[in-house]
């Protein structure tokens, strides 16, 4: 339990938290570290809050789920309400600044709460589709579970076939990743 980094990513179905989680643990695994990822899933194929539980460590990982995370990222109002149970005094809690009506739902015992304008930046500066990659950048910057180079090669591995068709997509994704890092660097 000691050196394991625990991350919970939550959003609405379709926001892409599961694919980000998948790429993140893939990157860690490629670095030769131990990684464990489990999606939370209900009966519905679509809809509802989607949570990804990730753990990355230098040794074998214990139970697939955990009580408290080192980092929680919530991307919708429902996701904030769903994930505050994983927050304690050692947790960094990040949510998207576009989320409204959650003032009363903020965790009380917490290391740090940070709102980041990931959705806004994705829409205005990049592309709505790379919203989740910005989030991934933020997660990496907070937890240092993998370095950016490794994250980029994991993106390449996952999306390489798309990058081949349209090289601009590579640039867009990498930019989104760096933007995510920028958004939290020096703030937590």
């Amino acid at each position: 339990m000691s050196n394991t980094v625990k991350v919970a990513l939550a959003g609405e179905g379709g926001q892409g938290v599961q694919s980000v989680a998948g790429i993140l643990v893939e990157a860690a695994n490629d670095e030769g570290r131990e990684a464990l990822y489990i999606p939370n899933f209900g009966v519905e194929q679509r809809g509802g809050v989607s949570v990804a539980f990730c753990q990355i460590s230098d040794e074998r990982i214990g139970s697939p789920k955990f009580k408290f995370a080192d980092l929680v990222i919530a991307l919708s109002d429902r996701a904030v309400r769903r994930t505050k149970q994983y927050v304690d005094e050692n947790t960094v809690f990040i949510y998207d600044s576009s989320v409204e009506g959650v003032e009363d739902d903020m965790p009380q015992k917490v290391k740090k709460i940070l709102a980041i304008p990931a959705l806004d930046i994705a829409k205005k500066e990049l592309h709505p589709r790379v919203f989740n990659v910005i989030v991934m950048g933020a997660a990496i910057a907070v937890t240092k579970i993998v370095d950016i180079k490794q994250a980029k090669s994991a993106l390449e591995k996952k999306l390489g076939y798309k990058f081949k068709q349209d090289p601009k997509l590579r640039e867009l994704n990498f930019k989104a990743l760096e933007k995510g890092v920028e958004l939290v660097e020096g703030k937590v």
């Binding site: 695994n29 489990i38 789920k65």
Partner: peptide
């Protein structure tokens, strides 16, 4: 279900 759905090495 955990073992079925989770990913690890």
């Amino acid at each position: 279900g955990y073992q079925a759905k989770m990913r690890e090495s």
